[in-house]
């Protein structure tokens, strides 16, 4: 017997940690990982609400989010490899070709 609100607050903690990591981290791979953390936090709210309504539609939504996250990880990591080939760095402060 755990209130659903506790699960949602856990998801809020994970999501805001992901936001903080996204803003603070300078390594592009770590930034990408914090996006995955935020996706996981949202998945937890979906599962908690699906449990609350006794329906599986929320769980199916999580399944689709997982599929999209897998596709996004494959493409994103390919882009990171391409950036590293051309710029020889993973620091987002040095990837500023559009700025100058």
């Amino acid at each position: 017997m755990v209130p659903i609100a506790y699960y949602l607050i856990l998801a809020a903690i994970l999501f805001s940690t992901g936001v903080a990591a996204f803003l603070i981290k300078r390594n592009i791979i770590t930034i990408f990982m914090s996006i995955e953390l935020m996706l996981n936090a949202v998945n937890l709210t979906f599962v908690a609400f699906a449990h609350m309504w006794h329906l599986v539609q929320g769980q199916i939504f999580v399944f689709f989010v997982m599929v999209v996250a897998a596709a996004e990880a494959a493409v994103g990591l390919a882009i990171i490899i391409a950036i590293f080939r051309t710029r020889q760095t993973l620091n987002v402060d040095q990837i500023n070709l559009l700025k100058n």
Binding site: M1, V2, P3, I4, A5, Y7, L8, I9, A12, I13, F15, S16, T17, V19, A20, L23, I24, A48, H51, M52
Partner: peptide
């Protein structure tokens, strides 16, 4: 750092305020 921690804390406070104020309606697991 200056923008990140207060921003994340603000998001957390907003979300947990909403969840806790609706805590009764959400029920238990």
């Amino acid at each position: 750092y200056i923008a990140g921690f207060p921003g994340a804390a603000a998001i957390f406070c907003l979300l947990s305020f909403v969840f806790l104020s609706e805590s009764k309606a959400l029920g238990v697991a």
